[in-house]
Amino acid sequence: MKTIAIVGGSVAGVRSAEALRAAGYDGRLVLVGDDVHRPYDRPPLSKGFLDGSVDEDAIGLLDPADDDELALELRLGVTASRLDAAGGRVVLADGSDVRADGVVLATGGRARRLPGTEGVEGVHVLRTLDDAVALRAALRDGDPRVAIVGAGFIGAEVASTCRGLGLEVTVLDGTDLPLAPALGRRIARSCVDLHAAHGTSLQVGAAVAGLATVPSGEGRRVVGVELGDGSTVKADIVVVGIGIVPNTGWLEGSGVRLDRGVRTDAGLVTDLPTVVAVGDVARWTDGAEAGTHRHEHWTSAGEQAAVAVANLLGGRGSATFRPSGYVWSEQYGRMLQLAGHPSVDDEIEIVDGDVADGRFVARYTDGTGTTTGIFGMGNPRIFGRFRRTELRRPA
């Protein structure tokens, strides 16, 4: 391969570039990104960047020295509009194209929005640097009341940051116990309790019916969130954190199979052997269970890059993706960490600390007594020890 194009400039795309060079690829390497900013790390957007404790320079994934070392051509602020696999090119929205022998799809996704809320003043999502800049400015405009729709990690992190700024915060979630499908009810309850312990109001089973708005200039401004039971939660700012939609529309008709993401085999190779997918957009097949998975996690994006690159350079079947299942979040001064692949039916044992104190480590075990996962809250050192000694990564 003389030229490889990476489409997508977040961590999955950058790690793919690094993996290509580490594997010995010395050809032309072009990274295309629709974001006008140089590649940056997303996790700080809901935490340190949002509260102003870190700036844009601190979250950059590449500096000029990296550009030189990777010999990376950056095409930023331009969207990929079509993949012409037969012609060996990525067609861009500005009318230009990138001729490539191999393509890495790392286009991630766009934030889901509540229907009918686009253009309403005071309604925010948090996916890009520009999103974070806009939200950060809004949070400093007076003393706004904040409502957050969605109590997943993003919603919880934004709630934590807003409380750190001294703001009144209400989190709304349609489930009876957020995070329970991923962590099990006992551990999920400990995460939910963090909100109350730090003055955040959490309303579960809260079905959002719409927004309360008032005229503002030529448009509308939000003043609250209307719930299915007829009540309204007053809010000057509404942050919607209900997941993402994979960016796959530009791949229609390309020969790449789409299924709520880009479908790949267990090595992250698409139906086209010279096209691989990594990060939030990749839905890979688990050969052992004949199931498919798509993970929206920072760690997963990095782990996938080396596997996808090995198969792109060495041919399909050169490597198989075995995710570690490691995820983390920072909320209210606590580090929450999960490793492994526990099931909601697994037994949970507290192996260090006390749940009541908000600092503990728990072990998940299946019916055979095998450790399937480790969870830690506020205790990274002990979590790391149990992760190393108790959890065996799939072969």
Rank of each mutant, 00 (worst) to 15 (best):
L391F: 15
T128A: 12
D35A: 01
R127S: 13
T285A: 15
G302W: 09
A159D: 08
V278L: 12
N311I: 12
G109K: 13
G317N: 11
I6N: 11
V91F: 10
A180P: 01
L29F: 13
V222W: 11
K234W: 05
N247R: 07
G253T: 04
V104Q: 14
A156T: 10
S46V: 04
G199L: 10
R294F: 06
I148P: 08
Q203W: 07
D143G: 03
R136E: 03
L20G: 09
G205N: 11
G77A: 14
G119S: 08
P144H: 01
G116H: 08
A182S: 13
I242S: 05
Y40A: 04
L202R: 06
G9W: 02
Y25Q: 03
P43A: 15
R260G: 13
R294I: 06
V125D: 09
V98S: 12
A339L: 10
P64M: 00
G88F: 13
S324C: 08
R257N: 06
V222C: 06
S160R: 06
V278Q: 09
V223Y: 01
E69A: 12
V149P: 01
R381Q: 10
G253H: 04
G267D: 10
V149L: 07
G77M: 14
S231Q: 11
V239F: 05
G95C: 02
P43L: 15
F49M: 11
R89A: 14
I242Q: 09
A147S: 06
K2H: 08
I154T: 09
S231P: 07
V30I: 13
I374N: 10
D55A: 07
G376Q: 07
G224M: 04
A196N: 00
V276S: 15
G353I: 12
L179A: 08
V361I: 03
V78S: 15
V169Y: 12
D55H: 08
P323Q: 10
A182T: 05
V103W: 11
G267Q: 07
R393P: 14
S190T: 07
S190N: 02
R113G: 06
V14M: 04
F49E: 08
R334M: 08
R140L: 11
R15G: 04
G317Q: 11
V361R: 00
H297P: 10
G210W: 06
V223I: 04
V262Y: 01
A235E: 01
V276C: 15
A132T: 05
F321P: 14
R82I: 09
D66H: 05
A206S: 13
D357C: 11
V344P: 01
R260L: 09
L70W: 03
G353D: 13
I4C: 07
T270L: 05
P380Y: 09
R316F: 07
R263Y: 04
D84I: 03
T79Y: 14
E252W: 02
V222Q: 12
H37L: 03
G152W: 02
G8V: 01
V233Q: 04
V262H: 03
V120T: 10
L114H: 04
A106H: 03
R359H: 15
G205M: 06
E121V: 14
V204N: 07
L62M: 05
P342F: 04
V256L: 01
V327A: 06
A111G: 05
A188E: 00
L70P: 05
R140C: 03
D41R: 05
G255Y: 07
E56T: 03
P323I: 13
V133N: 13
F49P: 01
R21M: 12
A71C: 12
P215F: 09
R145M: 01
V245N: 09
A288N: 11
V98N: 11
V14Y: 04
